[in-house]
Design a binder for these strands. Structure first.
Lengths: 339, 339
DNA sequence: TTGTAGGCGTTATCAA
DNA sequence: TTGATAACGCCTACAA
């Protein structure tokens, strides 16, 4: 029923080749026939058939490289599941996907991996460190014709093709809103943030503090400390904070280090403290069940992995991003009952 | 790179046709060659190329009919958006999708529509009323070779191919969990349910009450009333309840009728009452912003619409359901900040 | 029991 | 500037 190139060609009295040249702006076609073909295509409501394109795209042998700061970070388990799902889709288009993993936020290491990706790949999916060196490398790659799609990071750079991540400001604000609904009156809050090298972690803190100031100006924010996604550091610091500030009634953990922070709270027997965190890793689930963490703001990690690959595949094959442009990842709230 | 039928045929020294017969169990093939082909297919890690199949499936001209109790119910706006997305996918396979809408929960009307669908469609997507007449009709259709996929309903019937909906028990329990986190101590709760004709609405009430009994046995549930998804009835009843029970401190609305219930609470100036509801319609969003509704348990309506069509398309083309079997729809919590 | 051939829609190449 | 043709992977009808 839907219109095809063949139907358009018949109706216009030309060959399929000519129609193809018009619809894909390949030039070398008589302006008059071009106009006629475009009119007919519009009349018939032509949209390209994806299956046909997929089949034809196979011969190109595209390659996508994925760079992740994922080694030793359980949050990325689900992201990688999503990437695996995206890879199945990529296979239908004959596109190969390489995953390059690194540990922590080592700028020069990521720079190396980007160099390699620039050699072997046609498009790069990047879990970016927010650093000038990385930003300039991304620009350089773009100039050489290799686009970058960000996954699970925002970046102070507008040269990327797309960014598959949540609104981190909203994430922080949502955590603050939850605190407000549960704590009600006066409260003394501690913020345990991940790394200042990660833009999203900073944005969460900003979103949290701004929302508290707006909705609950009477609340007191005692302190903000970095866990560097390191459990021991998180544990030691939280222990000290609890000692120095026994009045603590709320704790917001922006990202990694949950185990350390929760362990300190648990050992102190402070089940009265309202803890809100991010993500839904096994560690988080464990402490939700224990009653330490009351609620968590999740960010669809599996979907992020899938959407990043999907967008890359789509861009290589169709030359544009899919309709659901920067891939709408939502901040979702989970408590014990629906986790 | 991925294996194709052609590659298997070459390696086995047979024709593509023979490989096809083996892989799709069409019979009429020498047991010895069958074994050899299966071994080679496994070795090469063969998986059928979806684009190839989609292209070949076009000639069959399948039809899917979708029956929805959606007229005058804004909840279904997003479900229909998802269906529209699924229809684009269906087009690639040359599958036509007809949407048959009805108003309310009129069993004989739904029965009529099922009759019609049985005539014209190869597969039916159904937003089912939980009634013996409907259940037996579904069985009858199945016997005549037409499978049914449920959307946004569960049904006391295990003859359906799949059910794309949330766990309604969990939905109710999640609402109860939220109440507990926000109300803390003693509470007096009113439940406004939709229709007893809809299985999901009953299940939500059961999930809610059971969770309250378990986690907060000290809470008191004052009453449960039906809104029949009718705003006026909801408004009038809620008004009476508030008059008779000024001690009300929590209200759970399972489904439709939110505007009526919220209006009654707003007019009584009872901003102290903690209201939890389901879904995220414009009405709900409005009352969340007004501060009447504190939190809502959503059920990814757009995704439900899409997944139902997607599953139907996949089943017609591949003869089996997609990997993400009964389509995992989650109960998600939203508050003002992340809605 | 097996092989051949044509077509689904799109794209690329080569010839006219 | 245009047309014809082959190819991508799968399925099916028909011939051997």
């Amino acid at each position: 029923m839907p219109a095809t190139i063949k139907m358009i060609a018949e109706k216009a009295g030309v060959s399929r080749g000519t129609v193809d040249r018009v619809l894909n702006n390949r030039g070398d076609v008589n302006p008059a026939t071009e106009k006629r073909i475009l009119r007919i295509a519009k009349e018939l409501g032509y949209t390209p058939n994806q299956a046909g394109r997929a089949l034809a795209a196979r011969k190109k042998g595209y390659v996508i490289d994925v760079i992740l700061c994922s080694l030793g970070n359980e949050f990325f388990d689900d992201v990688k599941n999503g990437i695996a799902r995206g890879m199945q889709e990529a296979e239908n288009y004959g596109i190969r996907v390489n995953i390059l993993e690194m540990k922590g936020y080592d700028v020069s290491r990521q720079h190396e991996l980007l160099d390699r990706a620039g050699e072997e790949a046609d498009l790069i999916v990047l879990n970016a460190i927010n650093d000038p060196l990385i930003i300039s490398k991304v620009k350089e790659l773009k100039d050489s014709g290799k686009e970058t799609i960000l996954v699970n990071t925002s970046l102070e750079c507008n040269e990327t093709l797309a960014s598959v991540c949540v609104d981190y400001i909203e994430s922080g604000a949502t955590a603050a809103g939850l605190m407000g609904l549960m704590l009600k009156k006066q409260a003394d809050i501690v913020i345990a943030m991940g790394s200042k090298n990660v833009l999203g972690h900073n944005e969460r803190v900003v979103g949290f503090i701004n929302n508290i100031k707006k909705r609950h100006p009477e609340y007191n924010i005692i302190t903000t400390f970095e866990t560097k996604d390191d459990e021991e550091l998180a544990y030691d610091t939280m222990k000290q904070v609890l000692k120095a500030h026994p009045e603590t009634s709320g704790v917001y953990i922006t990202s990694g280090g949950q185990r350390g922070v929760c362990k300190a709270i648990e050992e102190a027997g402070r089940y009265d403290i309202t803890v809100v965190t991010s993500d839904g890793t096994k560690t988080v689930q464990e402490y939700v069940r224990k009653g330490i963490i009351r609620a968590t703001v999740m960010q669809e990690p599996e979907k992020q992995g899938y959407e990043a690959i999907h967008a890359g595949v789509y861009y290589l094959v169709y030359g544009e991003l899919p309709d659901s442009k920067p891939a709408l990842i939502r901040n979702e709230i989970y408590i014990e009952e629906n986790l």
